[in-house]
Design a protein around this nucleic acid. Structure first.
Length: 682
DNA sequence: CGCCCTCGAGTTCC
DNA sequence: CTCGAGGGCG
């Protein structure tokens, strides 16, 4: 009796547990659908976790109740050996690539010819962004997910069912009622870009090789022998086509998308029906920009004829369907091989490594080299000669090495030894503690001289036309120029002695140099190439001293005292001036009658020099005009009041800045007082 | 002393 | 465009 009683209690408990397990599984399946398919969760991640944990607890307690379709079973057992092969019931075709409008028109014309359509007939298309992922075919029998396979060669692929079962966006059960006997959704397994970045960060932390791009990461994840690894990768799935189908009526491409959506798949919400090629073009142009804004990688747009009967009639020619094409955007990232690494010497002696690679097309231009910035950067990215690397254009123009594909290392790659001697003059290389750049210390290094001369003649500096890289190289090699001043002493005979230099061009060069003898002072100072003195600092120095003579006589403190100049730049200028070689250059420039244009030094020693003004409140004069007035008298406008502020000009409704000025005892002016002060110097 | 902003220097391709 | 460093300011 007692035994019976206990049994029935257990029976009851078991029944209750089974009921709860069933309920939990249903809940989880639903929330899963909301979260992974609709991207519109109804419960928080925490609540979902709680539900999952409750289910795991119950299943641990009652292992007999675990069924393969429980959401706890997404991760199956590791696979031994190769993936089995699967023959696709309907082959998975690849699409014809179309690059540019011309090929698009050609593609449509072929359709017209085939369908005997007049030129004015408007064809209806379905367009969607082409996701750069891995094409998959999923087989559902009577509504149940039974098999998932890669595209392979199109005819047969690999059975990776266990891995695909771990992807949350792939339902195990179709939501179609009644369940069709056969239904084969096809689509793309891929990784969101943000998830890809996170994954690579994790790989870095764990010292594992990085993936080149989301596509490679996806491919690597999906072909894992152990589904646990696949499960740990943030993969998702978009459906866009079907293979074999029984029991679902379909007439249009668009129907397919709708059925897939109803069946419980993610379908790209950006797909559109386009009436005619103009609408297709519009869609493509829209995506040329839009693709940078979405979280998945797209390299083009897929265009399909909407009517399935037409698709049938158009058929397939040598494994491409005539009824679809893939419009490809020029690639923005490319993979290439590093052939060599060289080192350039800059104007300041900075040694910068440069990677040369097999030329590749990136964002419309052919790229063959990219800077590696400096030794540290090179080491951080661990770029070696022979490495396969990912190249990208930074800001549409400048190529950069994004990362090395360490997975594809063969062991043949050579680590580049950063030189300890200048590659041009063999002088020692010095890398100060804590600084990133190594420098050649030889002041007379020919490479540095070349870079200095290039800087000297450049547009923002002396702006000497017709003297470019090539000529400079020749002049230095021929020993005709040893410093920037030597340019002004060149003779026609000397120029004629050079290769590819005839009477006419020699005269042009001389005229160009002659014409550059009277630049504005800031440009001349900038042209000298003093470290830490760029365009702006040169301007500030010129404004302060007015003439080269005044600058040459200026003590370091006075230079460093200029607002926005400072200690480092001041010391750099002074020590440049001290150097005998440089004094000689300045003397030679003067002797050659290189004289900066007369310019009124901006109140070089006026009463407002270096004073700061802050404006607050509404004024009758324009704010920018007020700032310009201030600059004209050698003072500077500033945004916030501090104890270093000299004047605060208050307009109407002045607020906290005026209060602060009063607190700090800064002189306060009304707008009228301000104007009077500047005009009359009161 | 540390944060934020701006400047300087080096760079690619057509 | 990017990185690193200088310079001002709190």
């Amino acid at each position: 009796m007692k035994q019976d009683h206990e049994d029935s209690t257990t029976q009851q408990q078991l029944k209750a547990a089974a009921a709860e397990i069933h309920k939990l599984r249903e809940q989880l399946a639903y929330h899963n659908y909301r979260y992974y398919i609709l991207d519109d969760p109804q419960v928080s991640d925490d609540e979902y976790d709680m539900t999952m944990r409750r289910l795991i607890a119950l299943e641990t307690e009652h292992p007999d109740l675990i069924t393969p379709d429980s959401p706890t079973q997404r991760v199956g057992a590791p696979l031994e050996g190769e993936f089995p092969e699967v023959v696709h019931r309907v082959p998975m075709l690849s699409l014809q690539d179309v690059r540019g409008d011309e090929e698009l028109v050609e593609w449509e014309n072929r359709i017209r010819r085939h369908m005997h359509l007049p030129a004015e007939a408007v064809i209806e298309y379905v367009c969607e962004p082409k996701i750069d992922g891995l094409a998959m075919s999923l087989t559902y029998e009577n509504g149940k997910f039974v098999r998932g396979a890669t595209r392979g060669n199109g005819r047969q692929g690999e059975d990776i069912t266990a891995n695909l079962r771990t992807i949350n966006a792939i339902p195990w059960q179709l939501r179609l009622e009644p369940a069709p006997p056969i239904f084969e959704p096809r689509g793309e397994v891929f990784m969101m870009r943000s998830e890809f970045e996170k994954l690579n960060e994790r790989q870095t932390e764990e010292g594992k090789p990085l993936f080149a791009n989301p596509r490679n990461a996806g491919a690597g994840s999906v072909r894992q022998k152990d589904p646990k690894i696949t499960a740990s990768r943030p993969l998702t799935f978009f459906a866009y086509a079907v293979g074999a189908v029984e029991g679902v009526p379909l007439h249009k491409q668009w129907d397919i998308l709708e059925v897939l959506r109803r069946a419980g798949f993610r379908v790209n919400s950006q797909s559109r029906i386009c009436q005619g090629l103009d609408a297709v073009r519009e869609f493509i142009e829209h995506w040329r920009e839009e693709r940078h804004k979405v979280d998945y990688a797209t390299d083009g747009v897929v265009v399909k004829v909407n009517d399935l009967r037409w698709q049938d009639e158009l058929g397939i020619v040598n494994r491409f369907p005539r009824w679809a094409c893939a419009f490809k955007f020029p690639p923005e990232e490319q993979i290439t091989r590093v052939l060599d690494i060289t080192v350039n010497v800059g104007r300041t002696g900075a040694l910068t490594p440069l990677a040369h690679f097999e030329p590749v097309e990136v964002a419309g231009t052919t790229v063959s080299k990219a800077t590696l910035h400096n030794e540290d950067e090179m080491k951080r990215k661990d770029i070696r000669i022979g490495d396969k690397v990912v190249i990208r254009k930074a800001g549409e123009i400048i190529p950069e090495v994004v990362r090395v594909i360490t997975e594809e290392r063969t062991g043949e790659e050579k680590v580049f030894q950063f030189p300890t001697q200048c590659p041009v003059c063999n002088a020692a290389v010095v890398k100060p503690e804590g600084e990133a750049v190594a420098r050649c210390v030889n002041a007379e290094c020919p490479a540095q001289l070349e870079r200095l001369l290039e800087h000297f003649v450049s547009r923002g500096a002396m702006n000497i036309d017709r003297v470019g890289e090539k000529l400079i190289k020749q002049l230095v090699a021929a020993d005709l120029v040893h410093d920037v001043a030597d340019l002004f002493y060149l003779t026609k005979e000397q120029l004629l002695s050079l290769e590819r230099m005839a009477e006419k061009s020699a005269q042009n060069v001389l005229d160009s140099i002659e014409g550059a003898k009277h630049p504005p002072l800031p440009r001349l100072i900038f042209a000298l190439g003093i470290r830490h003195v760029g365009e702006r600092t040169a301007g500030l120095i010129a404004d302060r001293f007015g003439t080269l003579e005044a600058l040459r006589a200026a003590p370091e403190a006075e230079i460093a005292g200029i607002h926005d100049v400072g200690q480092v730049a001041g010391a750099s200028v002074r020590s440049w001036l001290e150097e005998e070689h440089n004094q000689h250059v300045l003397d030679k420039l003067e002797k050659a009658e290189v004289r900066p244009e007369e310019s009124t030094p901006v109140a070089a020693d006026g009463q407002f020099t270096g004073k700061s003004f802050v404006f607050t409140g509404a004024m009758t004069i324009d704010r920018r005009e007020a700032e310009a007035m201030v600059k004209r008298v050698g003072a500077r406008p500033s945004g916030s009041v501090s104890k270093k502020t000299d004047y605060v000009v208050v307009g109407d409704n002045a607020g906290s800045k005026a209060d602060r000025a009063r607190e700090l005892g800064v002189k306060i002016l009304t707008e009228e007082e301000f104007k009077a002060l500047l005009e009359l110097g009161l």
